[in-house]
Nucleic acid binder design. Structure first.
Lengths: 237, 237
DNA sequence: CGAGATGTTGAAAGCACTCAACCATAGTGG
DNA sequence: CCACTATGGTTGAGTGCTTTCAACATCTCG
């Protein structure tokens, strides 16, 4: 599988990751164009769906989810953002999603006015957006066509750095095809991201555990015993 | 409901629509920046998933779908494009989707090299992409959280101009809340777009017919008898 | 330690899927 | 002109995966 494709995979949500912005190579940082870096606590709302869009946001550190609600309370998490991703762009309309932090997060906030004025920024913007678009395409396949097991396997694989992509060459060390993950999401958040219920997510994880593919150290600390086996379950092989 | 939100709703796929590009107000046209306008027959592939990305495409007339395939043949249509939408952007990677026409289509094709050089184009690009992003978010809710009936109702509503949005004020004429639609998609294409099977799409349409909400004149010509009733079934009210 | 939040498991139900047969339409060629 | 075929669409019966509802377990934190 290949969420967010090359260059953005596995950053931020992985305990062992570096955490550098990865949206594009040799890119212009938004911080060069004014605005301020703001810190948010975990589970803080940055803005609500329906709010007038005033600023452009770049995630510098931590992770943020974007979600939409239906009137009856059903929720769909539409994106899980990593450092380097941008959000809040609405073309003069209202924000179409709520933005909420998953972890502590550092966010660069720039007034949309200023964004309009910089050619350099527009260029970076286009590059970031088209990267995120790929992630959304991939996610549409997951939501529209994959089984529960495939969704959870895909979700876990996309947290593994340098694995599961088209260019994946398998484990570097054939005797140790394992990896430690931090999820930073509750079962409910995972379920809402994967278009499943909390119970189904829990059941699938228990199942993977029973089959020896993963080990659950704590609810949000998961050890992958055999990455390749997991990857085989994503529906992309 | 509100696919593609304000400004892009209901264009192109509707028989009665004007067909003017709608991606952004007062925008720069891609045709001003070289490249050539190419005509495609219905069901022609413009490029395949995995092909190296060479050009940027702007849809001028007709409609185009982007889809991804899983190795076992499952297909997900990730976007149905309208005039004004752009596609083919891949940031130096391979195309992540296959692009195939649904109808006769006129497409403006610009070498990516040239796109890189124009500030004006980059600006337009960012605006178009963030518009399309909204559509993808909306679609993720549909795929992840809506029932079969809600999906089909949402699909039909998004083909109706000026209705179903947040600013929808109901029928202009209280005695005639109806509308004629052309689908330009087979049941299979609709199913792959909505994350359903062809049989389920067919059954839901028959159901709407039985309930008197729609009338099916030909497989791809559907008359909405009561737009408001249909809108109530989208899950967004 | 106790209370609230979060996660797991079981049993039963439901919705969409699978498989299969049938129907409708359009195009072809005798 | 009409049988014949191909393609696309509809309908029915039965299955199965995910959901729903409910109980229970575990974790966190004052």
């Amino acid at each position: 599988m290949a969420y967010f494709e090359v260059g953005t995979r596995g950053q931020g949500a992985v305990a062992t990751s570096g955490g550098a912005p990865v949206c594009a190579t040799a890119r212009t940082s938004f911080s060069d164009f004014g605005g301020k870096a703001v810190h948010y606590d975990p589970h803080a709302v940055i803005y609500y769906e329906g709010d007038p869009a005033r600023r452009l946001y770049e995630l510098l550190r931590g992770s943020v989810m974007l979600y939409k609600l239906l009137p009856d309370g059903r929720r769909q998490v539409v994106e899980v953002l990593q450092p380097g991703d941008i959000f809040g762009l609405a073309n003069g309309e209202e924000n179409d999603c709520t933005a909420e932090t998953l972890t502590d997060a550092l966010v660069q906030e720039v007034e949309l006015r200023q964004v309009e004025q910089s050619n350099e920024l527009q260029r970076t913007l286009a590059r970031c957006l088209s990267n995120q678009m790929r992630g959304l395409h991939e996610h549409a396949v997951l939501l529209g066509r994959k089984s529960a097991v495939e969704r959870v396997a895909s979700f876990l694989m996309h947290l593994v750095p340098d694995r599961g992509g088209l260019d994946c060459t398998g484990p570097t060390n054939p005797d140790d095809d394992s990896c430690d993950l931090r999820l930073h999401m509750t079962r409910q958040e995972i379920a809402d991201y994967l278009g499943l219920t909390i119970e189904t997510v829990s059941r699938v994880i228990s199942d993977l555990k029973r089959r020896g593919v993963i080990r659950v150290d704590k609810a949000d600390r998961i050890h992958l015993n055999r990455i390749c086996s997991l990857c085989q379950m994503t529906g992309m092989h």
